[in-house]
Design a binder for these strands. Structure first.
Length: 424
RNA sequence: GGAGAGGUGGCAGAGCGGUCGAAUGCGGCGGUCUUGAAAACCGCUUUGCUCGCAAGGGCAACGGGGGUUCGAAUCCCUCCCUCUCCGCCA
């Protein structure tokens, strides 16, 4: 959620930044300012009336003590009218706060100045590309065929147990998952991230604070009996660790990493391009999450990108870095890089990481602040990125490394898998 | 799941209908003293909203919500959470 005071004081800037998303920025902001005006005038009026009543109540106490019974009764009678007014004003204030809130929640984050305008993935910028794209020849198979052939991935069993999009890994496939998770966690720990094992379900307040609610309600699995949500990413619980906190400036930056399974309903996305592991309802992901001072957050973003690049290089995967255009960015993000690996058998790029700076968009909802040099609490910046998301990494890894003898495991991963080749 | 106890400031812990945003202690910050440090002493030490150019005001918050009252941290209702005991259980 955008900061109201910032929006008020930097109206033109916010409008210009927001316009990159190809939405009616002017209209959205105008309406917000208007609703805020109503809220503020109501607040002022209510405060004044409440002050009057407070003074009156105090005088009643003093009159009683002084034995002036009649005067006290007169004051009591006077307070009735004030109370009426206060009740009405409170209602009005609540209503105006609610309409303001309801409106603010519909405004996406304002993109950073560097973000290219645009509305489709075609308008994203390719920042860089690295790694040789393997020539597999005509007999190359997509990962879902390889998985079946080698017997380590079973989409059909997942259907039996749960439904489409819930893969079952077995044998070397299961071990490969575990190896990747351990490898990613170790690399993040080396880079100074603290490992977190969070709950895999969160309450509505947490889902709201990181922006899953109300914006992406339909994307999450909802356990209605207890009103809990299955996390779509570790970002949700890990970022919410700091909800309602004021952190001393010298404690920043905070760098956390967590592995969790991720659950996404992905309602309405079916077809050939989502076969196999390309898009599933449950996948494993190692996520890095940072809390930063505003002046450092963009340097942190680049640092996170470098970290992810290191992982992709170690896995010997051809990859590229995309700077998302305004219209393709997530609702809460101010700037997002996507990392994609090339899946040689499918001849397409697969998104395996999304690294974003949310600036104060999340912390405003989280009420996550830090105390700077001036001792005043200010909203911190939050960032997060996948490092990395497993299912598609596995897809690309096994497709790109298929050969006549089996599927080759990259060197960096071999200490973790305990084998160098996936065989039949 | 059953029974009981309790939720107050960074922490500990008072307050149990009025002047209590809240005693006191600890911690933290600033100062005095000291060659320096410690001790001692003095002062300061929550957050949000709002009015104001500012100085400085006002309002709200004692787990959440509602109620009683001229007035609630204090009384009542309700929800949530924590702890103890019992039951169940990886």
């Amino acid at each position: 959620m955008l900061e109201l005071t910032f929006l008020r004081e930097h109206r033109d800037e916010t409008e210009a930044r927001l316009a990159k998303r190809n939405i009616d920025a002017k209209g959205l902001i105008e309406h917000a300012i208007e609703l805020d005006g109503v809220r503020r005038s109501t607040q002022t009026e209510l405060d004044g009336t409440q002050a009057e009543l407070n003074a009156l109540s105090r005088s009643v106490g003093e009159l009683m003590k002084g034995g002036k019974k009649e005067e006290a009764e007169a004051a009591k009678a006077k307070s009735a009218a004030l109370k009426d007014g206060i009740a009405r004003l409170k209602e009005r204030l609540e209503a105006s706060e609610k309409s303001l809130q309801d409106h603010l929640v519909t405004i996406p984050n304002a993109p950073n100045a560097k973000v290219p305008p645009g509305s489709t993935p075609e308008e994203n910028t390719v920042v860089m590309q690295e790694g040789a794209i393997p020539e597999l020849g005509p007999n190359a198979k997509p990962h879902w065929e390889l998985g079946e052939e080698y017997g380590f991935l079973h989409m059909d069993l997942g259907v039996k147990l749960t439904g489409a999009g819930f893969p079952v890994y077995s044998g070397q496939g299961a071990r490969l998952q575990r190896a990747l998770i351990a490898f990613f966690l170790d690399k993040a720990t080396e880079a100074g991230y603290r490992e977190i094992i969070p709950p895999h379900m969160v309450n509505a307040a947490s889902a709201f604070a990181t922006g899953q609610l109300p914006d992406k309600e339909g994307q999450m699995y909802h356990a209605t009996v207890d009103d809990l949500y299955l996390i779509p990413t570790a970002e949700v619980p890990i970022t919410n660790l700091y909800r309602d906190e004021i952190i001393d400036a010298d404690k920043l930056p905070i760098k956390n990493v967590g592995y969790t399974p991720c659950f996404r309903r992905e309602a309405g996305s079916y077809g050939a391009h989502v076969r196999g592991l390309n898009r599933v309802h449950q996948f494993d992901k190692v996520e890095i999450v940072r809390v930063e001072k505003p002046e450092n957050s963009y340097a942190a973003l680049e640092e996170m990108v470098e970290h992810v690049k290191g992982l992709l290089r170690a896995l010997e995967l051809p990859y590229r870095q995309l700077l998302l255009c305004g219209g393709d960015m997530g609702f809460s993000s101010a700037m997002t890089y996507d990392m994609e690996v090339f899946s040689a058998a499918q001849q397409r790029w697969l998104e395996v990481s999304s690294i974003s700076n949310f600036e104060t968009f999340q912390t405003n909802r989280l009420k996550l602040r830090y105390r700077g040099e001036d001792k005043k609490p200010r909203l911190a910046h939050t960032l997060n990125g996948s490092a990395l998301a497993l299912a598609r990494i596995v897809a690309a890894l096994i497709e790109n490394n298929q050969g006549p003898d089996g599927i080759r495991i990259p060197k960096a991963l071999q200490p973790y898998t305990g084998f160098t080749l996936i065989t039949k």
